[in-house]
């Protein structure tokens, strides 16, 4: 019995020592983060719907690293050091991305050596300005102004503006308790939009909601939002 036991121990030792070898590569350790901005102001979007691609040339088979933008316009990625190319694919996000001479989406060279914070400048169709949210007798009232940023041939109209409220801080078309939509004539004066929604019963009860105003631009899939606000009542 004894020799067999030794043999077993030796076998296990060899087996497990084998797995103590270092991995071939270190895990990516360089942080790449920042915001998408227009004139230093973050662009608020719906989380998980807007992303850019990072391509690293020179390694044979290519595949993009998709980096998601969170709802407040921040992004962050863990990368290896190296040279990357950053690009938003066409029709991504509620903004325009510069095109190169051939009419394709232009790329931005990103050199990573050590962590880096970078704000990515984009050109939104509209910005939601002066958003104010107030609580009043079971309702949330809100007002804002929409500023048209792109006014040349690429300008687009607004399809609808929507006030969303939700019980968590994720507030958008897919995550909301209720909403109020302004369309057509209600959008005549973009300098002065006002909303009012009744807060439904929330289970379990809470004495606050989160609110945002979203703007759907016609012919653009992703909405642009106002900054998030917690409304206490």
């Amino acid at each position: 019995m004894r020799p067999r036991f030794y043999f077993l121990t030796a076998a296990l030792l060899v087996l497990f020592l084998g797995s103590c070898k270092k991995d071939n590569y270190d895990a990516p350790a360089t942080d790449f983060n920042g915001r998408i901005v227009y004139k230093d102001e973050a662009i608020n979007v719906q989380y998980g719907n807007v992303y850019f691609e990072l391509w690293q040339p020179g390694f044979g088979k290519s595949g993009a690293i998709n980096v998601n933008i969170d709802q407040e316009g921040h992004y962050s990625a863990k990368l290896f050091d190296g040279n990357y190319k950053l690009v938003f694919s066409a029709n991504q996000g509620p903004f325009l991305w510069p095109k190169n001479a051939q009419g394709a989406q232009d790329t931005v060279a990103v050199n990573m050596s050590g962590s880096k914070t970078m704000d990515i400048e984009v050109m939104p169709y509209y910005m939601v300005r002066n958003s104010v949210f107030t609580a009043a007798a079971g309702k949330v009232n809100a007002s804002c102004k929409l500023e048209k940023i792109i006014t040349d041939v690429n300008a687009k109209d607004i399809e609808r503006a929507v006030l969303y409220i939700n019980k968590t801080q994720f507030v958008d078309g897919s995550n909301n308790l209720t909403n109020q939509e302004l369309t057509g004539a209600a959008l005549a004066d973009l300098n002065n939009l006002s909303f009012s929604v009744t807060v439904p019963t929330i289970v379990p009860t809470q004495n606050y909601v989160f609110a945002r105003i979203g703007v759907k631009i016609s012919g653009v899939e992703d909405m642009i939002f106002s900054p998030l606000q917690k409304v206490q009542f």
Binding site: K61, S62, G63, A64, S89, A90, N91, Q92, E221
Partner: peptide, 16 residues
């Protein structure tokens, strides 16, 4: 992406 890698003439579908 592996189809595009094998044949770079393939263009991506829109809005992805």
């Amino acid at each position: 992406q592996d189809i595009i890698n094998r044949n770079p003439k393939i263009v991506k579908n829109p809005n992805q």
